[in-house]
């Protein structure tokens, strides 16, 4: 009996070591492709800054770091809500609770978009555009590229919320939920690098 239990534990550990990532495998290849694109963007920004540090440091003083930090809080909290939603559905089969967590994530994601639009509005109002200088070209294009990903992430979250409310996902059937969640976490992960790079590094 003990030997069998021990064998089972070993087998479980073996399975765990070779476990696939949650969700559909295709979403992970998509995430890797997205991360590669952002990596190129981040490196381009960092090396462009290296060639004109004085300009980047001067222009950076005009970005609103408080709003950047607030948006980081929004995205981190949204990711936490999504992770709690996945846990509620996959561990407890609680799809109603899961849908409420997803609603929290949608609220936080919406907060990010509203704050970012305020930031863009202030910059465009001040006459800043893509052609103002290298810093603003990178600031606007890099943050807008990410902004578009947040919008797609919001669409995905709304679809997941509707499906979760209907009880479409459960402990043995959460592939779609886990795939969408992974995409949202990727959007969060990218902002985690973007915020210090653009708003803080000097």
């Amino acid at each position: 009996m003990d030997a069998t239990a021990s064998q089972l534990t070993r087998t479980d550990k073996y399975d765990e070591q070779f476990q696939s990532p949650p969700g559909d495998l295709a979403i992970w290849f998509f995430i890797l492709a997205e991360l590669l694109a952002f990596a190129v963007f981040f490196a381009a920004y960092a090396f462009a800054r290296a060639s004109d540090v004085a300009l980047f440091n001067e222009m950076q003083q005009q970005v609103n770091r408080n709003l950047g930090a607030l948006n980081t809080v929004f995205l981190i909290t949204a990711s936490w809500c999504v992770a709690r939603a996945v846990a509620a559905v996959t561990q407890d089969g609680a799809h109603r609770l899961g849908s409420r967590w997803l609603l929290g994530a949608i609220f936080c994601g919406g907060g990010f978009l509203v704050v970012k639009m305020f930031e863009y509005s202030a910059k465009f109002g001040a006459g800043i555009s893509l052609s103002t200088n290298t810093f603003w070209m990178f600031y606007l294009s890099l943050t807008f590229f990410h902004f578009m990903h947040v919008i797609l992430g919001m669409v995905i979250l709304v679809v997941l919320w509707v499906q979760t409310r209907k009880g479409s996902y459960g402990p043995d059937n959460a592939n779609g939920l886990e795939s969408g969640a992974a995409y949202w976490h990727m959007v969060d992960l990218v902002w985690i690098v973007l915020f210090p790079l653009v708003y803080v590094m000097r």
Binding site: P22, V82, A182
Partner: peptide, 11 residues
Amino acid sequence: IALDYMGLRPV
């Protein structure tokens, strides 16, 4: 985020 939120710790 990668290990805990994305759930990659045990994979």
